[in-house]
Computed example of a mutant assay.
Amino acid sequence: MNRLAAFAALIGFLGVAFGAFGAHALDGRLTAEGADWWHTATLYALPHAAAVMAIALSGRTGLLRSGGWFMAVGACIFAGTLYSMALGAPRWFGAITPIGGVSLLVGWALAAISSLRPSN
């Protein structure tokens, strides 16, 4: 069982679903700021879902796989807090968003370090 691949697929599915929902069902219902948050959340969720899926299917372990998990969790935290605020969650959720961003950065850093090491 490849839990990382399943998680990546879920992030991708939700990114597409939420993107479409925002473009159609929420059109004109969000504030300008909320619409920007929604767009940014989708913009970050979808490519990270693809990156995590690539890592999950690479068969690699160690730092690269850990990087994939950091990206997956980071995408959920980053996008999730932005989607939540767009739908009316308190603005203090914005203080959580950078935790997701840092997790994304850690994931990419681990992927970079892993690429400089022999395959495992």
Rank of each mutant, 00 (worst) to 15 (best):
L110N: 09
A86D: 01
A75F: 05
H39A: 15
A9K: 04
S58V: 11
V106T: 14
M85C: 01
F13G: 11
R60K: 14
A56D: 10
T40I: 15
L57A: 14
T31L: 07
A89I: 04
A49T: 01
N120C: 10
R29F: 02
P118M: 12
L4E: 02
L4I: 02
L64E: 13
T97H: 03
A20H: 04
W108L: 14
A112G: 14
F21A: 10
A89F: 07
H39Q: 15
R117I: 11
W108C: 11
N2H: 05
A86I: 05
L46D: 06
F13Q: 02
A75P: 08
L4T: 00
L82C: 01
G15H: 10
H48L: 04
Y83I: 07
V16T: 09
G19Q: 01
T61D: 13
N2T: 06
A86Y: 02
L104K: 11
T40C: 00
L105P: 03
A32V: 15
Y44R: 11
S115F: 13
P90C: 00
I99S: 03
V102Q: 00
F78M: 10
A5Y: 03
T61Q: 14
T31D: 11
A41P: 12
L57T: 15
L63F: 09
L104H: 11
V102W: 00
A51E: 01
A49C: 02
G22L: 07
L64K: 09
F93E: 05
I55G: 01
A32K: 14
G100L: 04
T42N: 12
S103R: 08
S58I: 12
A9D: 12
V73M: 12
W38C: 10
L10T: 15
T81L: 04
A89S: 12
A5C: 03
R3M: 06
F21M: 10
P98D: 09
A17E: 06
F78P: 10
G19R: 01
W92P: 00
W108M: 13
H24Q: 08
A56H: 12
A20G: 06
F70T: 08
